[in-house]
Design a protein around this nucleic acid. Structure first.
Lengths: 271, 271
DNA sequence: GGTCATTGACTGACTGGTCAGTCAGCAGGG
DNA sequence: CCCTGCTGACTGACCAGTCAGTCAATGACC
């Protein structure tokens, strides 16, 4: 229960909000400074370079997701599997999540040019595929899943969900199209990839139910600890999930280290 | 058989090479000018803004892919389907293709911020999903495929392959890992998504065979028309495939409209 | 308990480099 | 001699990073 958000937290929140507002390509140190009501010089005081700051942010976000995965480790494999799928599903009106994932995609596309970013990407890939593998192994051992190729299944699942999300966000200014890309693909994945995995008589929970049951999405759920808040009347919803990774949702913040307020969301901004 | 490459073609080639060499984020007009041995001012003479040039390039690349799809329209559905999968498969040593797809991913991530880019992305999405749908419908009509949900299957297939490629290229500086991501996922897709689609007694060609049978990959195949070449001894390998799209390979150029120069795009206007 | 030194957090103004886009002008063919 | 294709030099904007300095808190010494 520490109170007042530390400067470090405020900066991470600022990066988050600035990324949502300006994307990665259009991100300046000044944007970040503005979002956390600090000076650009302060950012350089804590982080030598912009790259340092962004890498620290990535690390922060992935660690947070890691914590979220760990929290669910003791649930039954069938449920964890569907929850995993649901982390990637998001509707067209979740604009903050969308903005954040767009920025993450921009960041990911810089992996090939930046060792430190790529390192974080690899870490999150390990986390994602590892999580699926773990769930599958547990399910196979306990007899709810058939004895399939675990690594291959994990690779397929992660690629599919990630691909669906990427396509959904890059073409956000849609037009027509029925349900969101991720929704369609998640349903298809359930019936064509996951169900054939089940042992005789076993069933998966539905996506609809599972999505509902997942921890608060941005804007819902009361939220509680409101601390030192200044004029930033932030809700919470900070770090999302991981790289091209988990999908996560809103609040959480440092869910990992149950600390305080955290985040805010999108109120504000530039001009 | 027009001879000397038109300025328009040279510029498109320059954009392609510059994108491969510098990526999209690090791309300057000077880089492009250098790659086609022209001046930066010339680029502005033909295209008012950098954005105009990049959009024209995207359009060029997608049209080229369109032509490539059309060329194969009369092959049997089972083969077209596997060929589609194979367009996305690439090995770790195909570094030019990889560089180009990295740049395309960067470009795609700008879709949400740029209407004209997003328009091209939507176009290529229609092309990709439409192609798969068309193949499926043809196969269902002729009895080689079961009567599945065509749109859902197309969405699943495209998302999966695109996702696999995205993950492979963003973590290129790999470490360990067995076969490339796209290879693993393509195989998994074949056995878990495509094979269950087949009617009794029908079989799909293998990925290995199909990859081999596809038109030249970068660097292979003699290549013929070498014209006006200056010191730019470019192979050819110009436009690849589409957005997050098809995968295509090297040569091709203006396969689509055998016409002359074509391209140029939209010189014109203001100035 | 009052003065002074030190240090950590933080800021505004500045600098140097980069890059898209402009402009005046040149070659050559019709 | 004018028009098209093309160029080199220049400009203005933007931005990461620096620097000199402010301010508050902490602690030391008398």
């Amino acid at each position: 229960m520490t109170d007042e958000p530390s400067t470090a937290e405020e900066i991470m929140d600022g990066v988050y909000r600035a990324l949502c507002a300006h994307g990665y390509a259009g991100l300046t140190m000044q944007d970040i400074a503005d979002e956390c009501s600090k000076s650009k010089s302060l950012l350089h005081y804590h982080y030598d370079t912009k790259e340092d700051l962004l890498v620290a942010f990535l690390d922060h976000v992935i660690s947070d997701f890691e914590g979220r995965v760990a929290e669910r480790a003791d649930r039954p494999p069938t449920e964890r599997l569907v929850e995993f799928v649901c982390w990637f599903v998001f509707e067209r009106d979740e604009s903050e999540r969308e903005s954040f994932h767009i920025a993450l995609l921009e960041l990911r596309s810089q992996g090939p040019f930046n060792d430190r970013i790529r390192e974080q990407l690899a870490r999150s890939d390990r986390l994602l595929r590892g999580t699926v593998s773990e769930v599958l192994v547990e399910g196979i051992d306990s007899g709810v899943f058939r004895d399939v190729d675990v690594e291959e299944t994990a690779a397929l699942l992660v690629a599919t969900l990630d691909g669906a999300r990427t396509r959904q966000i890059t073409m956000a200014g849609d037009e027509s199209e029925g349900p969101a890309y991720t929704r369609t693909v998640a349903e298809a994945t359930m019936s064509r990839v996951l169900e054939p995995l089940l042992a005789e008589g076993v069933e998966l929970p539905s996506i609809a139910e599972t999505v509902e049951s997942l921890p608060a999405r941005t804007g819902e759920e009361p939220g509680e600890g409101r601390a030192a808040g200044e004029e930033t009347m932030d809700e919470d919803a900070t770090d999302e999930d991981v790289m091209g990774e988990g999908t996560t949702d809103g609040p959480a913040a440092d869910a990992t280290d149950g600390s305080t307020a955290s985040v805010t969301a999108d109120d504000e901004d530039s001009g």
